Simulated assay, not measured.
Amino acid sequence: MTYLETAINAAQEAGQLLRDHFHQDKNVDEAQHHDLKLELDRKAQDLIFERIAAEFPDHALYGEEGLGGNQESEFQWIVDPIDGTVNFFYGIPHFCVSIAMRQGEDILVGVIYDPMTGELWTAEKDGEVLLNGKPLKVSSRTKLEEAIVFIGCGKDEEALKIGLERFRKASLRCRKMRMMGSAALGMAYTASGRLDAYVESRISLWDIAAGKLILEMAGGSCELVPNAENPDIYAIKATNGLIPIDEVL
């Protein structure tokens, strides 16, 4: 199988696992004030890792729930088995599986799968960007007054402070504001023209790797600033490339 086929199959199989357990009780491995880790996070990631390793046993695997494969490989798969874990746990059907593959720093494949709606976003560098097999592109909106913007607030005190102030400022200019609980779906929605921007001051690589490729290939803009203390944490500004988002940040 190709890289893209492998990512799609793994995402859909993990998504089926999550959908099958959506209305069941979920076992919590770890509970924090603003976050949860579920047994299903680990099971879904293990399933994805197994499917990827079966096709590409010498590749590196990097996920929210740990590492696998050959960490010396130039090819790395970046996996978030449940982006939107808290939504999933509380029975809110807004979460997804996110899988990206990169060579060095160059993302070659991005897949985001929403198992509750059946929506599948796929992108392959130098190939196509599709939603359920159909081409997609960002919105053509240019005015903040017409825009719908997703502001993320992170989990630590500083990120919450920044996010809430941004939300306040943007709400005075934008048509509508959203806090949706899944960064990957926020980027997929921006790529699809449903949202016009997603902004957050502190987000993990596995949340945004697939979405970055999907958004950029759909004509959008994704600016990442690495965290000084952790190179896999970023500040992100993802937009349709047209609205003047800096005016409210």
Rank of each mutant, 00 (worst) to 15 (best):
Q76D: 07
G163L: 14
Q16Y: 09
G219N: 03
H23W: 10
P135A: 04
E5A: 11
G127Q: 06
E229K: 13
P115L: 00
Y198S: 10
E200N: 10
I162E: 03
T2V: 06
R51S: 13
K143A: 08
E146P: 01
A31C: 10
L215I: 08
N87I: 14
Q32R: 12
R51D: 11
E165D: 11
F56R: 00
T85M: 05
L40G: 13
Y3L: 15
N227W: 01
L249M: 10
N27M: 11
G118C: 02
A188P: 00
A188W: 03
D156L: 01
I99H: 04
S201Q: 14
A210S: 03
E13F: 15
S171A: 04
C174A: 08
G152H: 14
R166H: 11
G63L: 12
K212Q: 13
L17W: 06
R166Y: 09
G181C: 14
D20N: 09
T239P: 00
C174K: 00
E105W: 09
L47T: 05
I82Q: 08
R19L: 08
Q71Y: 06
F22H: 01
K155P: 08
D114C: 01
E72G: 11
G104Y: 07
R141V: 01
D29M: 15
Y113Q: 01
S221R: 09
K26E: 15
S171H: 04
N240K: 00
L136V: 03
R168S: 08
E157P: 04
A7D: 15
G241E: 04
L185S: 08
Q32I: 10
S182N: 13
I8M: 03
T2M: 05
I233Q: 11
A53R: 02
N70V: 07
N132Q: 02
G220D: 11
Q12F: 02
L40W: 06
V199T: 06
D20R: 04
G127I: 02
A218E: 09
Y198H: 08
M180G: 09
Y3E: 13
A60S: 07
D106G: 13
L215S: 07
D156H: 03
K143S: 08
Q16E: 13
V79K: 07
R194S: 00
R173D: 06
I107V: 13
L38N: 09
F95G: 10
D207C: 13
E65V: 09
G154K: 06
A54Q: 07
L38Y: 05
Q24L: 10
F89M: 08
T6K: 05
F88D: 05
G154A: 09
D207N: 14
Q103E: 14
I203L: 12
V28N: 04
H21V: 01
H59V: 12
A238E: 13
Q45G: 05
T2W: 08
L144M: 05
L224A: 11
A14Y: 06
V86K: 12
H34I: 10
N132G: 00
I233N: 08
S139I: 00
N227A: 09
G186F: 01
H34G: 10
A238W: 09
A44R: 03
Q16L: 10
N70C: 09
D246I: 03
H23C: 13
D232Y: 15
C174T: 08
D25L: 12
L185Q: 06
G219R: 01
